[in-house]
Every structure is written in structure tokens, then in C-alpha cells.
Simulated scan of single mutants.
Amino acid sequence: MPPTDASTETGAGPAPRTAPGNEDTLDLRLPDEFLALCAAEEAAHAPPAGPKGDGRTGVGRVTAGRSVDERADAEGAGDARTSGQRPSATGQDLLDSLVRWGPARTPAGEFRLLPVHPGRDLALLTRWMNDPVVAEFWELAGGEDVTAAHLRAQLDGDGRSVPCLGLLDGTPMSYWEIYRADLDPLARHYPARPHDTGIHLLIGGVADRGCGLGTTLLRAVSELVLDHRPACSRVVAEPDLRNTPSVSAFLGAGFRLSAEIDLPEKRAALMMRDRAHRHQL
């Protein structure tokens, strides 16, 4: 489970229990999609069935130029499998065609998410991951093989997490992971709801940090999620508690601090932006 951090991007234990009647009260029913994914993965790794009647069965690379943006529309119109988003093992689109979400207008310019292609984007992402400020929270410093392995875990997965470049007026300047928080290991640490959608973010350029841009883009991306995922009632993030600028950016973008939770790799601030309150904060 990658870190979340708006400024740079970012021992296991249970999340604090919420009081009875709180809107975050734990629902112990697992999402149907989660159960379907488990069944599909079990079937995919099952041994082949024996001969009929024998009694055995099977168990069921980028530059900082603007040419990247020119390719986004063509890729958005193409097949999701070739444009960075894959269907799940059950054939479901777990993130409602993220590749076709389109741009968002922000005070800083036009912003869009473009699913990552390792062959095009790997060098840029590796450079960002080796920035000392980024590496402190992402812990992915190293060669291109380190970044490639991190991307491969998502791109070869079932589609519950989609890595993206963030393009501002056509220029790649941030890295995002949009993921199904209710289908992620994170769901073991807080009272997840079906279709909870998570955000991980890093701002790539030093000049783009510390100027409020993270807050602007977090609001824009959470709006994109709520606009294009009608079943999602809230957007979730879990920045490291040590990263005060990140927590502040989420608060400025309309998120609330729901709880402090212990994750395997950090103590995190569980941040949520609720659909019901999206126009009030």
C-alpha cells in the first residue's frame, strides 16, 4: 500500500473504533466485488480438473513537453487495456473508465489524469522517486527497475489501482494512484464502505511545491472521482502524520480528518471527503 502525500506524495494495528451512531460505523459485510475478486483469483490459481469421472475437481518515457497531452484524447478513446487501465479478474471496470474521465478546469489551468505507460513515463517517474523529499515518504529511490516493479504491481493487477501522470496545461508535473480503498489492504484498518476511492499523490517539480498547488489539484481530482463514480460516497487518503504540509493540503481541499490509524509502514491521518458535504467545504 503506497504512501499518500500532497506535497511530495507520499506497526500494523487496528484503526480506532468509532462511537456508536457515528457515520463511519463499521459495516462488516464485505463488498460483493471483493468477494468476486477473491473467487476469481482462487479460480485462476486452481489446479486443472481431473479426467471426467475420476472424482477430482478443480477449485473453482516522458519529457516536460506538451506533446503528451495531444496523445491523451486518442488514448482515452482506445481500449482500456492498452491505455493503462485493465478490467478486473471478474471482467468488471473497478474505477468506472478512469481513462475517459476527461480534464478538469482549475485556477492553475486545465488538469487531467493520464494513465501511465512505463515505456513512455518510466524515466521521468524514476527521477521524481529519487528526489530526497519524495523518497522520504514513498521509499522508492533507486534505479528504473525499482519504479518499474512498483508500477507493474498495479498494471498487471486486476484494475483496482490505476497509476497516472497528472498533466497541468499539457505538462506532466505530478504522479497519482487512484484506487479502490474498499478493495485495498487499507480496508482492514478503517470502517470501509463499498466503492470508497483512494488517492495517492506526489508533486514532481520542486517549483510546484509549497505554493498551494497540491490543495488545488486534490480538490480537482476528488471532484473528478465524485463526478465519474456515482456509487462512491467518499474519497479517502492516508498521508503520513509526519507530513504536516500534506495533511494541511487535504484539509484545504475539503477533506476531514476521520482518525489516526496505524498502518504497517506508518502512522497515518485518515482523510475523507464526503459526497454529501462536497459543496460545503
Rank of each mutant, 00 (worst) to 15 (best):
L155C: 03
M129D: 12
G157K: 04
R127T: 09
A141H: 01
H150V: 09
I199H: 00
G143Y: 06
L183T: 13
W138H: 05
G166W: 01
V133R: 15
G198M: 10
P185F: 10
W128G: 00
E177R: 14
M173P: 01
G166V: 05
Y179F: 11
R127E: 13
G119C: 05
L125R: 13
A135W: 08
H150A: 14
P194S: 12
R180C: 14
E136T: 14
I178K: 09
T197F: 12
G119V: 07
A181F: 05
R188S: 15
A153Q: 15
Y179H: 08
D158A: 06
P172S: 08
M173I: 12
R180E: 13
R188G: 14
G170W: 08
D169A: 09
S174A: 15
L151I: 11
G198K: 04
I199F: 00
V146M: 05
G157V: 06
E139C: 10
L186K: 01
D131N: 08
P191W: 04
R193D: 12
T126L: 02
E144I: 11
D121W: 07
D184K: 05
D182R: 02
A192D: 03
Y190R: 02
L201G: 06
T197G: 11
L183W: 08
D156V: 06
Y190L: 07
A192Q: 10
L122Y: 07
D169F: 14
T147A: 15
H200M: 05
R188F: 15
T126G: 02
G142D: 01
T171I: 13
G157C: 12
V146I: 12
H150Q: 10
H195A: 07
A187F: 02
L201C: 13
R188L: 14
G143E: 14
V133C: 06
